[in-house]
């Protein structure tokens, strides 16, 4: 029991991070709305950022900026990595949103189910059109 409490005490940041990640991941996979998926993925990624930042923290450390009085600094490397990762994440979101706008233009919906239904319709239509074309042509011939 004490072990468990100790574990939670010393690693609660990580545990919360994992919980947040899973909320994000679940939404990404399970949601049928395209924008909701993007929201989920954002939550997922941002919580990973927190994981890195939490990793960089050193007890009694100060921000990694040169300072006369400081004895211990936090680890700067994860900060650097996350600066890059944030930008990457936003770029991905931007592309995803652009895609969603275009999908809405084409399908007039952002729900995956109705998109799938429309795609099936498309396929049926193209088969029908093909048959019609064939019949037309055979008539012509």
């Amino acid at each position: 029991m004490i072990d468990v409490i100790h574990f939670i005490q010393t690693k609660f940041y990580y545990l919360v991070v994992i919980f947040l990640m899973m909320i994000g991941l679940y939404t990404t996979i399970a949601s049928r709305n395209l924008i909701k998926k993007v929201i989920g993925i954002n939550i997922f990624q941002i919580s990973v950022f927190l994981f890195y930042i939490a990793m960089a923290k050193v007890k009694h450390g100060t921000a990694p900026i040169l300072w006369d009085k400081a004895v211990i600094y936090d680890n700067p490397l994860p900060h650097v990595l996350i600066l890059t990762a944030i930008v990457v994440s936003v770029s991905t979101t931007a592309v995803a949103l652009a895609l969603i706008i275009n999908i809405y233009k084409e399908y007039e919906t952002i729900e995956e189910d109705s998109i799938l239904a429309k795609q099936e319709l498309d396929e049926e239509e193209s088969i029908l059109a093909k048959q019609k074309l064939d019949i037309d042509r055979s008539n012509m011939a």
Partner: peptide, 12 residues
């Protein structure tokens, strides 16, 4: 237009 959906799925 399927290309957009394919791209989106790939993106996710």
């Amino acid at each position: 237009r399927e290309a957009l959906v394919a791209s989106y799925n790939y993106l996710i």
